[in-house]
Computed example of a mutant assay.
Amino acid sequence: MRKYSLLLILFSVFTFSQKYTKQEIARITEGNTDTALPIFQTSDSLQNKVLLGQSIDADPKNRYTIILVNRMKSALISTDGGVGIAAPQVGINRNIIWAKRFDKKGAPLEYFINPKILWFSEVLNLGPEGDLSIEVFRDYFYRSQVIQLEYFDLNGKKHTEIVEGFTAVILQHEIDHLSGILISDKIENQKMKTFENVELYKEIQ
């Protein structure tokens, strides 16, 4: 058991030790670092390549992570009603996302570093989704109604929580981005599946 725990610690250290490349640093710090980074679009072939790439973990305490997190928030705020954003959407293939927490009072924006979904509910939600990186595309998607999420904050502290409803949908959408999965491609895969409508019951006191 101790050997297994040691391996996990060493794996985490190795993962977080993947420093930002010169290209990433140049991208993160370009222009005024207090402003939003431009949002990449699938209509641009070079930007689309980044959007389709596989992201890697980021060191939560790295100073460039702090800058990236803040500039991603500014980018999301600058949109017309956007509810989430992932690092690839600002040109950085790192596992960082922002999401609007409709499950909390005031629906605050929150960031998640190296997020992982540990568990998905079998009960699904069907609802509309769009994407800040895909112009004029919207469709209906099935997503798990409840997920168990693990992530880190900028202090390097790990968090685990259960998230439900529309916020869970947003998180699944943004985490898909980290694997290069776009809803324009996801819809084709969804069309090949069959979904059954099930009834839910609530006890009456």
Rank of each mutant, 00 (worst) to 15 (best):
I183A: 07
I187E: 05
A107E: 15
E164G: 02
A86W: 15
H173M: 02
T167C: 00
D139C: 04
H159P: 02
N93H: 09
R94D: 06
E161G: 03
V90A: 07
N125M: 14
T167Y: 12
K191H: 08
G180M: 08
D103G: 06
I170M: 00
L149M: 06
Y111N: 09
V169F: 09
S144E: 01
S121V: 08
P108R: 09
L124Y: 11
K158D: 06
Y140N: 07
P115N: 13
E188W: 09
K105N: 04
K104G: 06
K104P: 04
D103V: 06
Y151S: 00
G82H: 15
Y142W: 03
G165P: 10
L109S: 01
K158R: 12
V163F: 10
L149W: 13
L118R: 14
N93I: 12
I85P: 08
F141I: 01
N125V: 13
Y142S: 01
G156S: 12
I162P: 00
S121E: 11
D103L: 07
A87P: 09
Y111V: 05
L76D: 07
L171Q: 12
E188G: 01
E122W: 12
I170P: 06
I113P: 00
Q148G: 01
S179V: 00
I183R: 15
A75R: 14
F102R: 11
D80W: 10
R143S: 01
E150L: 03
N155K: 13
F141S: 04
L76M: 15
A86Q: 08
T160A: 01
L132H: 08
K158A: 03
G82E: 09
W98K: 06
T167M: 05
Q89C: 08
I85M: 09
G106V: 11
R94Y: 14
H177D: 04
R138F: 11
E150I: 10
G91P: 14
G165R: 10
Q172E: 05
Y151G: 01
E161Q: 08
I77V: 15
D131V: 10
I170K: 04
G180A: 01
